[in-house]
């Protein structure tokens, strides 16, 4: 028996909007730790890892570890039917081939049940080793989204370089090239508007902008984004989900052929 009650139901709506374009089908794993997902995109270039900790749910019952295979587009369709202020409960019976999403309006005057068919998905979990990153950039998530969108109108790839001067996002394409430099800026009033750069070593890596733009679909989940870079490692683009966990996107860099 599984029953997870999330008062901020719109968090789950936002999570689905953030991953459904990158991943088609995925197993959601439910354990005493929380509700999680790890999945690769169809071309095995990017990986998404989601964790919603059990403590973040108002009620969390998970009698045994369960893995539920879901089509994320279908799940997103169902969650779109929940109101933004609705409480969402995920329910599944042991051995059942369906999952139920229950939506309750805040004043309990409307209760809806949406039952979705589960699917068998063969997927292996990848081990993500702890790593020391050469540079960690924390910046407003809307700013990062804007840069990725702007650069993708010029080129297909972005070079992210971190030096003492700041973090530089560069692209080049048929019509020309573009560089956006963000300097460390902690003097603003609100911490969520600041840019901080923790650099141990300068680093410069090239990534496909198509994936970066896809990651920025998670922008509504968090006002800030953390970009962790190390040469010879996938970049980690992390959006913290307040009081609940995180969504992390890993993207392998491009190299000279």
């Amino acid at each position: 028996m599984l029953e997870l009650r999330l008062v901020q139901g719109n968090l789950l709506k936002k999570v689905l909007e953030a991953v459904k374009d990158l991943v088609t089908d995925a197993n959601f794993d439910c354990s005493s730790t929380g509700f999680s997902l790890q999945a690769m995109d169809s071309s095995h270039v990017a990986l998404v890892a989601l964790l919603l900790r059990s403590e973040g749910f108002e009620h969390y019952r998970c009698d045994r570890n369960v893995s539920m295979g879901m089509n994320l587009n279908n799940m997103a369709k169902m969650l779109k039917c929940a109101g933004n202020d609705d409480i969402v409960t995920i329910k599944a019976d042991d051995g059942s081939d369906t999952v139920t999403f229950m939506f309750e309006s805040p004043n309990q005057d409307k209760i809806a049940d949406f039952e979705m068919k589960l699917m068998d998905i063969d997927s292996e979990h990848l081990g993500i080793p702890e790593a020391e990153y050469h540079a960690i950039v924390r910046m407003p998530s809307s700013e990062f989204a804007r840069i990725c969108k702007d650069l993708s109108s010029i080129g297909d790839t972005v070079v992210i370089s971190v030096t003492k001067e700041g973090v530089k996002f560069s692209t080049r394409g048929d019509i020309g090239n573009a560089n956006v430099v963000c300097r460390q800026n902690t003097t603003v009033d609100k911490p969520e508007e600041s840019t901080t750069i923790e650099m141990h070593e300068p680093v410069s890596l090239t990534f496909a902008l198509r994936y970066m733009n896809s990651f920025t679909k998670a922008t509504p989940l968090s006002s800030t984004v953390t970009i962790s870079l190390s040469s010879e490692l996938p970049v980690v683009v992390e959006y913290k989900i307040a009081e609940m966990g995180y969504i992390r996107f890993y993207l392998a860099p491009k190299i000279e052929d």
């Binding site: 095995h44 270039v45 990017a46 990986l47 081990g127 993500i128 496909a208 392998a252 491009k254 052929d257």
Partner: peptide, 14 residues
């Protein structure tokens, strides 16, 4: 010319 690396080059199955 640049080549896209797969994620499996960095992360192995558990």
């Amino acid at each position: 010319k640049q080549k896209q690396q797969p994620i499996s080059r960095f992360f192995a199955p558990k």
